[in-house]
């Protein structure tokens, strides 16, 4: 029975990793390709391993920065996808943690208040909400505010910043398009908030009363007691929650469908942005072999990211 529970997991990871890694390896090609490009070296035998390593790393870097394939391409990579996913996930995770952590502290520390129960119920509901509705909500909000926001705030701001700091700012701040990375990050952060809040709340609720009283008695102010002294007691659980939440939002697709939309080029973050899950969703449904292969390759990379975050979180939770 226990084996049955984890069997699909191994089947899925095995399938995705096998097909994905073989697709990636096919893209990497032979490291000798790069070496042939170097001047011939009389000491090739002695430095063979080092040159091989450099060649492999170089072609891996090529793979990580190249564009995803159109139907007739034969070399492809995951460059824009990786950049978009990392940017939106990092932004969403930071915002989600900053808002979610105090909510968790409130629910965990002030359990006796009536409003805390309301907040707890709302967090429980939001963590279960269908993620696509959150994407739709952010889409509707952005449609509502975007014109005014661009006209009154973002255009002047970006002009001023561009004149002060140079053109690079335009990649990050500027008049927003209908689909942009910030909408995606906002949707991801809304998914992250309740997740972090729930774990933080249960961690704070499990602090023994003796420690809680000691914390309040030595720290003087409530803020210090809650956020500095008591935080140390639960920092490990909260760190785990943050990492698991990040792993969760890194793989979310539905909230990004109408907010980041997806892209196959490097684009400013104020325009439609690519993401690995979006590319998997799009490419797996095309009839072209090369795109399906690239979906598997991208899925393998996504799986590596998620598994790494998950493993780090579990290890951080266990070390005591």
């Amino acid at each position: 029975m226990g084996v049955l529970a984890v069997l699909p997991l191994f089947l899925i990871i095995g399938d995705v990793m096998f097909k994905g890694v073989s697709a990636i390896v096919k893209q990497l090609g032979s490291p000798w390709e790069f070496l042939a490009w170097l001047p011939p070296d009389p000491l090739a035998d002695r430095w063979g391993v080092g040159r091989l390593l450099v060649g492999t790393l170089y072609s891996l870097w090529e793979f990580l920065t190249r564009l995803p394939p159109d139907p007739f391409a034969d070399r492809w990579g995951i460059g824009p996808l990786l950049v978009g996913t990392l940017y939106m996930t990092a932004l969403g995770a930071v915002v989600g943690f900053i808002v979610g952590f105090p909510i968790g502290v409130y629910i965990g520390e002030m359990r006796k208040e009536a409003f805390a129960n309301v907040a707890r119920a709302s967090v429980n509901v939001l963590v279960e909400f269908p993620t696509i509705t959150i994407g739709l909500f952010v889409y509707a909000v952005f449609v509502f505010v975007i014109e005014d926001l661009n006209r009154t705030l973002l255009s002047p701001l970006s002009e001023w910043l561009t004149s002060a700091l140079g053109d690079g700012v335009g990649q990050f701040i500027g008049p927003l398009g209908g689909y942009n990375a910030y909408a995606g990050a906002l949707a991801l952060s809304i998914i992250m908030i309740p997740y972090v809040a729930l774990v933080t709340a249960s961690a704070y609720a499990s602090i023994p009363d003796s420690i809680r009283e000691a914390a309040y008695s030595i720290s003087g102010r409530e803020f210090k007691a809650m956020f500095i002294v008591l935080r140390k007691a639960v920092s490990r659980a909260v760190l785990t929650a943050a990492l698991l939440g990040t792993a969760k939002i890194a793989g979310e697709t539905a909230p990004l469908l109408f907010t980041a939309l997806g892209n196959i080029y490097y684009a400013p973050f104020t325009q439609a942005t690519a993401a690995i899950p979006l590319w998997i969703w799009y490419a797996a449904q095309t009839p072209y072999d090369v795109q399906i292969e690239s979906a598997y390759g991208a899925a393998a990379v996504l799986l590596v990211i998620v598994l790494t975050l998950f493993a780090v979180a579990k290890l951080a939770a266990q070390k005591r």
Partner: peptide
């Protein structure tokens, strides 16, 4: 981990396997 896997990967597996 099974609960935390990206859903799109489940979809990919469901579609082709």
């Amino acid at each position: 981990l099974t609960a935390a896997m990206p859903t799109v990967i489940y979809g990919l597996w469901g579609l082709f396997v």
